[in-house]
């Protein structure tokens, strides 16, 4: 049982032994060199004020690359009906195989991204915070009428991503959906798609430009509204190709990008837009109302937990 090598310290970002004045002073009193783990990061964070996000799972170049590539495939998982070339391998007579192909592929992709972001280990504080916020989100999903289009857990995902950074936002988004599905016994083929979309919601929330005060709140509210709307639009896409509702709103293989886009737009407008718009507006409104105290609470927690 040897103690961990030093690099773990640097990763956890909480405690780095330093050789500063206190060492010398205790050395003078004759004790062993005894200064342990000072942490100026927290005070520095306080001095920085609330503007600087407390990035917990920072995206390194490698994880960013993996995330970008995987997101590309993820995007294809939603939007393939617009791009499927006639005669392609996925373009068979059934027409409904491609969605199942992606249902099978996406969990692997999510696993790869999350493993990559957490490579090198996540320290206990980050795991606990991640778990708790995902629990809050999952509880909100269980309480709120998630199926009817409302997605109250978006507040947690958006604000969590904003405060704790991109990598954390992505993992939080996917984990919230995952835990929510497990808690309510709602694991289904839609789950990988939801996990990806919610992960993006958290990711982009962490990538928004830096600003503060009312501007920040307005920006987040606007982002929440857009995210709520786009989330609905994307999620319809996974089951859209299954339907043969009527030729004018259905996915028609080989019909080309323009036709299918138009069909989908009509489909969206006539079916779920009535849910998606209120969802977007409510998410935006909720962020506007609860954003300030929630972000203050998250930042206070980050300070107390001494993340840097």
């Amino acid at each position: 049982m040897t103690p961990d090598p030093a690099p773990r310290l640097a990763h956890s970002g909480t405690a780095a032994a330093t050789d500063d004045a206190t060492v010398t002073s205790s050395a003078v009193t004759g004790g062993e060199p005894g200064s342990v783990a000072t942490n100026r990061a927290a005070t520095a964070a306080q001095a920085r004020g609330s503007r600087q996000p407390h990035a917990i799972l920072p995206l390194r170049l490698r994880s960013a690359l993996v995330l970008a590539l995987v997101s590309l495939v993820g995007l294809a998982a939603y939007t393939w009906p617009f791009f499927l070339t006639p005669g392609a391998a996925l373009d068979n007579s059934h027409g409904s195989d491609a969605p199942w192909f992606f249902v099978a592929l996406l969990p692997l992709l999510v696993a790869v991204v999350v493993a990559e972001i957490s490579a090198g280990g996540i320290d206990a504080k980050a795991v606990a915070l991640l778990g708790m916020l995902a629990a809050v989100g999952a509880a909100l999903r269980a309480l709120g009428p998630g199926a009817a289009g409302l997605e109250p857990s978006f507040i947690v995902i958006v604000l969590g991503g904003r405060v704790f950074g991109r990598g954390f936002g992505f993992v939080l988004g996917s984990l919230t959906i995952f835990a929510g599905a497990l808690v309510t016994g709602g694991v289904g083929p839609w789950m990988p798609f939801q996990m990806f979309a919610a992960g993006w919601v958290g990711l982009f929330a962490g990538m928004l430009p830096r600003c503060h005060g009312r501007v920040e709140l307005a920006m987040l509210a606007g982002y929440g509204a857009v995210a709520g709307l786009v989330y609905g639009g994307l999620l319809n896409l996974w089951f859209w190709p299954f339907g043969a509702y009527s030729p004018e709103v259905s996915y028609i293989p080989h019909a080309g990008l323009g036709v299918n886009l138009h069909h989908y737009a009509v489909f969206w407008a006539t079916t779920s837009l009535g849910w998606d718009i209120p969802r977007g507006l409510l998410t935006g409104l909720a962020v506007l109302v609860a954003g300030r105290p929630v972000m203050a609470a998250l930042r206070r927690a980050a300070r107390r937990a001494n993340f840097g």
């Binding site: 280990g121 996540i122 991640l130 778990g131 984990l175 995952f178």
Partner: peptide, 25 residues
């Protein structure tokens, strides 16, 4: 899989605490 161990722990935590949070609420 082991590579997802930490996130798995977070998932267990989320699942354990979500019902408690509902009760708290």
């Amino acid at each position: 899989p082991g590579a997802l161990y930490e996130v798995g722990v977070a998932g267990v935590v989320a699942m354990t605490f979500a019902p408690q949070l509902v009760a708290d609420a």
